[in-house]
């Protein structure tokens, strides 16, 4: 029987059908799969409810009244699920937006940091460069003073002059080291295949020729190949070997090992020695510029070698670390990215 209520129910069913069609046409572009599913279930329940209402009001049968009531009771639940899905979706969107914001901030801060590092680099280069001229004057005039007034100066004055000359020589070494480090940091990377075994063998041969009286066992793994800037990697490997050579100088039976191991899919190169080692509690300072753990009298040097190595490894986007024990020796590990594209970005 047709009455106003049954017409309304027919409209309800038609609208529910239209809504379902609209939902499947558009919703996937706006909502996630879970939300679309919730919406679809809610509309399906409404559609079913509307059909039962219409059947009842058109007077087809009264048998479905119980079903209609049960489905009706589920409708607010279905809406609740949809609202919950909306809130969850908003929550996920908020988190994504926050992540994006965070990433942008990190990028900005990284860019700022790189910029200030570049400025600092340029500043230290210019300071080091400008310091050389007055330093040369101090050293030169002290030498002139010593040579031209050798008879008229007493022993104390001569001693002071020697100290000035030695100090200015030491300062000159430091300035040169800083300039050298700065140059290496600014050099453009030219990545290609590098045979680290050949580099190590050649350098150790040179060292042995320079100090033939030393008894040192070399264990160099063959076929150590990597990708990187050949000039910079040669400097890094030479510095590490030089370090090992220096700190094993007081050992009667020194041993220097250069090799690599594979861990978690990464190739880790290492330079190991049985030298004097150091206290791992101070390891965080090890790669700093002009940091020294031993006195200059015992082991010569100005503390720039490991800083240079770290700078070079960092520029290749690799990492470097060490393990050591006092009087037991030290092992320096470093990794280099396998993919040459990873090297392409210049680090400050």
């Amino acid at each position: 029987m047709i009455n106003p209520e049954s017409i309304c129910d027919a409209v309800f069913v038609a609208a529910a059908l239209t809504a379902v069609m609209g939902l499947f046409k558009n919703a996937r572009h706006v909502f996630s799969g879970g939300t679309v599913l919730m919406l679809a279930m809610m509309l399906a329940l409404h559609l079913l409810y509307g059909i039962f209402l219409a059947i009842e009001w058109f007077g087809i049968t009264n048998q479905l009244e119980g079903f209609e009531d049960n489905i009706g009771a589920l409708l607010p639940m279905a809406w609740a699920f949809v609202i919950y899905a909306f809130l969850q979706e908003r929550h996920v969107r908020d988190i994504r937006a926050l992540n994006l914001l965070l990433e942008r901030r990190v990028e900005e801060r990284t860019a700022q940091l790189e910029e200030s590092n570049r400025e600092l680099e340029a500043f230290s280069y210019s300071i080091s460069h400008d310091l050389r001229a007055p330093l040369r004057s101090i050293k030169g005039f002290a030498q002139i003073l010593k040579e031209d007034y050798i008879g008229s100066l007493d022993e104390t004055a001569n001693n002071y002059l020697d100290r000035i000359i030695n100090a200015s020589r030491h300062m000159n070494d430091l300035v040169e080291a800083m300039l050298d480090l700065s140059r290496k940091s600014r050099k453009e990377l030219d990545c290609q295949e590098v045979d680290l075994t050949a580099v190590a063998e050649k350098y150790l041969k040179d060292l042995q020729e320079r100090q033939p009286y030393r008894r040192v066992t070399f264990l160099i793994q063959s076929g150590l190949q990597t990708k990187g800037d050949p000039v910079l990697l040669r400097i890094a490997v030479e510095n590490l070997i030089d370090n090992a050579w220096k700190y094993t100088s007081k050992k009667s039976e020194a041993c220097i090992e250069f090799g690599c191991e594979n861990k978690d899919g990464k190739t880790i190169f290492y330079v190991k020695d049985n030298g004097v080692g150091f206290d791992m509690n101070r390891a965080d300072k090890l790669f700093g510029v002009f940091q020294r753990f031993h006195s200059e009298k015992d082991y010569e040097g100005i503390g720039i070698g490991l800083a240079t190595v770290r700078r070079i490894i960092n520029r290749h986007r690799g990492s470097i670390w060490c393990e050591a024990q006092v009087n037991q020796g030290a092992t320096f590990y470093f990794t280099l990215p396998q993919n040459s594209d990873d090297h392409s970005q210049r680090l400050p």
């Binding site: 558009n26 919703a27 706006v30």
Partner: peptide, 9 residues
Amino acid sequence: LAVWCWRLP
């Protein structure tokens, strides 16, 4: 609800 569904982009 039907209008809302059809208005979705």
